[in-house]
Amino acid sequence: MSLAMASTFPFVFAYQIMALPAVMVMLLLAAALSWFLEPSTSTTQNPVVIAVTILIALGVVIVVLVASVIGFFDGWRAGWRLARGRAIRETLSDTIAKKCFDRLKSRRT
C-alpha cells in the first residue's frame, strides 16, 4: 500500500504537466480576448470579458483537477502492480498515458 501511495505523486505531477499546454492555450485565449475588446485598460468593466475570464478560470481548474484525479488513479494502479512484483517497464507500459501516446503515434504513421 505504501508503494501505491508513493507512486501517486509522480503520476499526478506528470499528468498535470501533460495538461499544461491546454491550460496555457485557455489562458492565452482569455488574455487575447481581453486585449482585443479593451486594449488600453488595465481593469475592465466589460461584462463579456469578465464572464469569459471566469468561465476560462473554471475550465482551467476543471482541466487540472481531472488531470490530477487521472494521475492519482493511474499512479495508484502502477504502485499496486509494482508491489505485486511486476517489472517497472511492464508497469509503465500499461498506464493510461502510454496507451494514449501509442494511439496518437499509430495515427501519425
Rank of each mutant, 00 (worst) to 15 (best):
G75H: 05
A22N: 05
T91A: 13
L20T: 12
S93A: 12
A97V: 15
I56H: 07
V25C: 02
A32L: 03
T8S: 07
G75C: 14
M18Q: 13
V60K: 06
V69M: 15
T43C: 11
P39D: 15
W76R: 13
G59W: 04
P39G: 14
E90V: 09
F36G: 01
A22C: 03
V25F: 01
A97I: 08
T44G: 11
S68L: 11
S93L: 14
S106D: 06
M24W: 06
F36M: 14
A14R: 08
G71F: 06
I88C: 13
V23K: 03
T41E: 11
V61W: 03
V12T: 07
I17V: 15
M24S: 01
V63S: 07
A87W: 05
V69K: 15
L55S: 01
Y15G: 04
I17P: 06
R103W: 11
V12H: 10
V60D: 05
D74W: 10
G85P: 11
L37S: 04
V61T: 06
L28Q: 02
K105T: 06
M18T: 09
A19L: 05
V52E: 06
F9I: 12
F9T: 12
M24K: 00
P10I: 07
R86Q: 15
F101N: 10
F9N: 04
P21E: 04
A51M: 14
E38A: 15
M24A: 00
C100Y: 06
I88T: 12
P21G: 04
Q45D: 13
E38Q: 07
L27R: 07
G71Q: 14
A32G: 06
W76V: 13
T95P: 02
T41I: 08
I70V: 13
V25E: 04
A51Y: 00
M18G: 06
K98D: 10
S34L: 12
A31R: 02
K99Q: 08
V23D: 02
D94Y: 03
I96M: 13
L58K: 09
V61G: 03
V63Q: 10
L82K: 14
I17H: 11
A30F: 03
L65S: 14
S34T: 12
S93Q: 13
T41S: 15
V64M: 09
A57W: 08
V61Q: 05
W35P: 00
